[in-house]
Design a protein around this nucleic acid. Structure first.
Lengths: 201, 201
DNA sequence: TAATGTGAAAACCTTCACAGCT
DNA sequence: AGCTGTGAAGGTTTTCACATTA
């Protein structure tokens, strides 16, 4: 979110930004901003603030957002096709370079410029294309199995679209996209407008 | 996640479950499970554990998951169409009962069993159909405006698919679905396998 | 004057450990 | 014997407040 806001600021012509202003944009306190940044370096100038362009570049480098991250997709059903055709990944360096499906009907079908391959090819493709991230778009009942296969094949990051809470070891980085869970985590607060939703995003 | 795990347990024929077992399934400590539940009531029996069916019903009621939550969709582009046709919402009580788009070309087109309506109809439709949740699937540059319109029209919960951090007042409940941000929050840990990713999901 | 970077304090959250119930 | 519910302890995170510097 820091990088995103800094990109916006840069594109709006800002050269310098204070923790105060960043806090306003990110809905955080200025103290939080300064503490966060202080863990990674001393990026600011007292009396002035942070150089937008400089801070943005530093953070992009620290977070690894300045490089390409090849990914593979498992499952080319409705959701999988939407993912592969989603234009938001490539400009941020996330490139789906291979797609797999267990359904023989789907194999060799061209989707979004790549050919769907059988699950047997997984390990080889991951090694060949230096794939570090696996995107899981298979039905819930197959998701844990597929995630295990991806990890066995050498993937260390998982973006999981299946509505389950996958079990993975501590050295695997997993993020879940689960719209139903997101909605279900809102309803309590919709009923109790007096309750303060601490977790806002 | 509690409700989901309890549903699984029920369907697998379990009658009782301990905080120990729940902890195993949810990757949490037994103490955390007991503490969480204790904030809402005393659902367990000492020496025995929690009755699966009973705890599930209680939590569903507390969280408001035992009722219908009519929602509306803004933006019927590629993503919006995928959302409206997604079969996972309805069984959980989240029903998209109205769809809107600012593009006159889309108006009155039937998508997923409902007619696309112009933005002017928003307030009326929200009142008529008791809509409490708005699902935002418009381009980033329009998202904040649309969210403001939804809130003005009376919606209190927002499920936002646009890659922005919307600014909303404290009494609005918002959840963001942002796959790119999810990927971007993984890369640091993919580079530093020694760093412990505290935030795992 | 204006804003950072940072120890210290305050607030918050998780885990421990055990009395007490089944 | 087994497991909950819960004060107290232990950790972690956020905020405060100010010395410091441009």
């Amino acid at each position: 979110m820091y990088v995103r806001v800094l990109t916006q600021l840069r594109d709006s012509g800002y050269d310098v930004v204070s923790s105060q202003q960043l806090g306003g944009l990110l809905q955080m306190t200025p103290a939080q901003i300064r503490k966060d940044l202080s863990y990674f370096g001393r990026f600011g100038k007292q009396g002035r603030g942070y150089n937008v362009q400089f801070l943005r570049e530093e953070l992009r480098q620290i977070l690894g957002l300045d490089r390409k991250w090849p990914a593979c997709l498992i499952g080319v059903g409705r959701l999988g096709q939407a993912i592969i055709n989603y234009p938001g990944f490539v400009p941020e360096g996330f490139n789906v370079v291979a797609a797999f499906d267990s359904d023989p009907e789907q194999i060799a079908r061209p989707i979004g410029g790549i050919l769907v391959r059988p699950m047997e090819d997984l390990e080889q493709a991951i090694r060949e294309s230096n794939i570090t991230i696996g995107i899981v778009a298979v039905p819930a009942r197959e998701a844990q199995k597929v995630i295990d296969q991806l990890i066995n094949a050498g993937v260390r990051g998982i973006l999981n679209y299946a509505p389950i809470a996958p079990k993975v070891s501590m050295d695997i980085v997993i993020r879940n996209i689960d719209p139903v869970l997101s909605l279900q985590s809102m309803t309590f607060y919709l009923m109790h407008e007096d309750a303060i939703p601490i977790i806002r995003r």
